[in-house]
Simulated assay, not measured.
Amino acid sequence: MSQTIRHPEILDIARREGKVTVEGLAEHFGVTLQTIRRDLSDLAHAGRLERVHGGAVLPSGTTNIGYEERRRLNADGKTAIARACAAQIPENCAVFLNIGTSTEAVAVELMHHRNLLVVTNNMNVANILSQNRDCNVIVTGGSLRHSDGGLIGDITTAAIRQFKFDIGVIGCSAIDNDGDILDFDVQEVGVSQAILTRSRRTLLVADHTKFKRTAPARIASLQNVDMFFTDRALHPDLSARCADWGTEVQICAGKGKA
């Protein structure tokens, strides 16, 4: 198999898993470790991947990957996370859902909830829940971000501060090893911080790929959320910190996983 055929598949695996390993790819393609190392070096030189010890990850930086690509990334894991998160949201309550593909997945899982007041700065969430006649949807307003249908800025933050939510559900772009929750857009960070301060209970939804990326703007710490839903076990050090902080971590198994 030529490298021109391997490269797109390597990128597809990296998008699904967040990381690829030299040994895993060599076994997958039936080629030598040296061949895979050359492939990864070529993809890194082209800016498609970043080399790490033993393999490569999706490139990090100051801009996020495309929204449609993020929707496809680890879809099964996000569905499992969303289902577990939605199970923690009772009927007859006020909920905020922010921007992100993971929060969109939560919206889908709320389609049969009754008597919800959902406030959102995510046009996609509003469109999803418009199909639930037992759900009252309020859109915050703000500056429309065309890339993902998100509403951000001072108008959005001011609208959020008019409410006191029973539950606030947020996503993020990355999570650092020390438990810091990160994002790319400073204006979106301000919105997320407002949600955290105006919610009685806060839930974070983020799949394992967020641990393999970085972003420049800090939202908060895992210490500042009540529950964290993800699809793979945390590093033992971070898991211990969450236990000390009182942050409940729920590992959600995707399709075909134990």
Rank of each mutant, 00 (worst) to 15 (best):
Q3P: 09
L11D: 01
I13S: 02
E17Q: 09
G24S: 04
A26L: 11
G30R: 12
T32M: 07
S41T: 14
H45Q: 11
A46S: 08
E50M: 14
G54V: 13
G54S: 08
Y67N: 08
Y67W: 14
R70W: 07
R71C: 12
N74S: 13
A82H: 02
C85F: 10
A86L: 13
Q88R: 12
A94R: 09
L97D: 00
G100H: 03
T101G: 05
V106C: 10
V106Q: 03
L110K: 01
N115G: 10
V119N: 00
N136I: 09
N136Y: 09
V139M: 00
G141E: 01
S143M: 10
I152D: 01
G153L: 00
T156L: 01
R161D: 08
Q162D: 09
D166P: 04
G168N: 03
D176L: 11
N177V: 13
I181V: 15
L182V: 08
D183Y: 03
D185N: 08
D185R: 02
S192D: 13
Q193S: 06
T197Y: 08
R198M: 06
R200Q: 10
L203F: 12
R213I: 04
Q223E: 15
A233T: 15
C242W: 08
C242Y: 03
A243T: 14
W245A: 13
T247I: 11
T247E: 03
V249T: 15
